[in-house]
Write a protein that binds this DNA or RNA. Structure first.
Lengths: 197, 197
DNA sequence: ATCGTATATGAACAAGCGTTCATATAGAAC
DNA sequence: GTTCTATATGAACGCTTGTTCATATACGAT
C-alpha cells in the first residue's frame, strides 16, 4: 500500500549518498546531535534502509574518518620527492593547507568527533593521524640534524605547526580577501621563520 | 514516601555544583551527548531540580561559555602594562598558555560547542572571543607600525598565533616531560621568530 | 513552636532515539 | 514472461530525551 517509491538496485549509489549526507550533517550539527532519520531524510530514504549500508551509526562515523585519513596519507605519499628539508617543509605546508581546504567537512569531523568513537575505533584513527604527524616530525628532525632548522623540541614544533595550519580552516572562505596562493605564502613565511636556525 | 533526602536551602551551593558537573560532562562527552539526568546524577539530585537554576539546557551551556570568556577578558585586562610591542606579545603568549592550561574543560567547551548555541547566544559569545583576539591583533599592529614585527597580514597572523597556542591544550599534561615554564619559552621562541622583522 | 518559603522529589508528558524485521517491489537473469 | 534476489518500506521495539508540575520537606524567621 502507499504511494510507489523508487526502488531496486541502487546499492552503489545509495551507499555513497548516505556517507555524503552523514558527512555534511555530522559536520554541521555534530555526530551526537544527528539522528539516523535525519540522514535518511537527506538521502530520500527510510531510516531502516541505512542498515543495508552500515551496521550501525558508529561505523558510519568511523568509516568517514578512516576514508579521510587514508586519503590524506595516500595523497601525501604521492607527492614528488623533495630536494631537502626546507623544500620538504614548504611542500608540506602547501599540501596540508590545500588538501584540508578542499575537505572542510572531513577535517572538521576527524577533529571534533574523536570522542564519539569506540575505544578500538579511536585507536585506529589515532594511529593514522600519528602517521601523518610523524612525516612532518621527520622533516623537522632532518632539518635540525642538517643544521637548517632550530627548534627546541621537534615533537612540539610538529604539533605547533599543524595547529597553526589547521587554524586556516576556521576562517578561510573561498572568494574572500585572499587567494589560496596568498594564504599558502603567508603561512609558509611564518612557519619557515618559526623553525629556521 | 521514599527515603528522606537532604533538602532545604542549598541554593548558593547547588547552583555552582550543577555548572561544575555540566562543565565536566560537556567537556568529556559533548553537549549533545549529555543528558540533564546525567548532570543531575553527578550533583546527587533529581533532574527536575536543575530547573531551579537554569531555564533550560541551552542556557547552561551559554552561561559556562560566557563566564569563561568574561573571566578571560578580565584577567587579561588586569595584566601590567607592557613596555612595548615585543614585551606585550611575550606577555600575551605567557598569559594565554597559562590561563587556558588552568581551565582545560572551559577551553574545550568554548571551542567545540559553539554550534550548539542558539544564533543569539552564538553572536554574544563570538563578540567576546573577538574582543580577545583584537587585543592580540592590536599588539601585532603596534609592532608592525613600529617596525619591530613583519607580518604579511595582522589578522591572519593573529589567528595563526592563537591557533598555535591553543594547540598546547591538545597535548600538554601536567607532570609530563616539560614544565610549564619550558613550554612557555618554546612557544614564545616560535611566535617571536614567526612575527619578528 | 509555628509559619512561610525556598528547594527538592518523583511521576508524567510528548517526542525522538537507534535498531530490527516482516513485507513489498523493482530490476536482472534466464 | 517468469523467477530470483537485492533493495526498500513502514511499523514496531524498548529506551531516553528535555521539560513541567503537583507534592513533600527542611530550614530561617517570628
Amino acid at each position: 500500500m502507499g504511494m510507489a517509491r523508487t526502488q531496486g538496485s541502487h546499492s552503489d549509489i545509495t551507499g555513497p549518498r548516505i556517507r555524503k549526507a552523514a558527512l555534511g550533517l555530522f559536520a554541521r550539527h555534530g555526530y551526537a546531535a544527528v539522528s539516523m532519520r535525519q540522514i535518511a531524510k537527506e538521502v530520500g530514504v527510510q531510516a531502516g534502509a541505512l542498515y543495508n549500508y552500515t551496521p550501525d551509526k558508529q561505523s558510519l562515523l568511523y568509516r568517514l574518518m578512516q576514508d579521510h585519513l587514508k586519503d590524506l596519507l595516500a595523497a601525501y605519499a604521492a607527492l614528488d620527492k623533495p630536494t631537502g628539508p626546507e623544500d620538504a617543509l614548504r611542500r608540506f605546508v602547501g599540501f596540508h593547507i590545500r588538501f584540508h581546504m578542499e575537505r572542510p567537512d572531513e577535517v572538521f569531523i576527524a577533529y571534533m568527533e574523536l570522542r564519539n568513537l569506540t575505544p578500538e575505533n579511536f585507536s585506529e584513527i589515532e594511529a593514522l593521524r600519528r602517521a601523518y604527524e610523524d612525516s612532518l616530525e621527520r622533516i623537522l628532525q632532518d632539518g635540525q640534524n642538517a643544521g637548517l632548522f632550530s627548534v627546541a623540541d621537534t615533537k612540539i614544533a610538529t604539533l605547533a605547526v599543524i595547529a597553526m595550519l589547521n587554524g586556516v580552516m576556521t576562517w578561510y572562505r573561498t572568494g574572500g580577501r585572499l587567494s589560496l596562493d596568498e594564504v599558502e605564502q603567508i603561512y609558509w613565511d611564518m612557519v619557515r621563520r618559526a623553525v629556521t636556525a
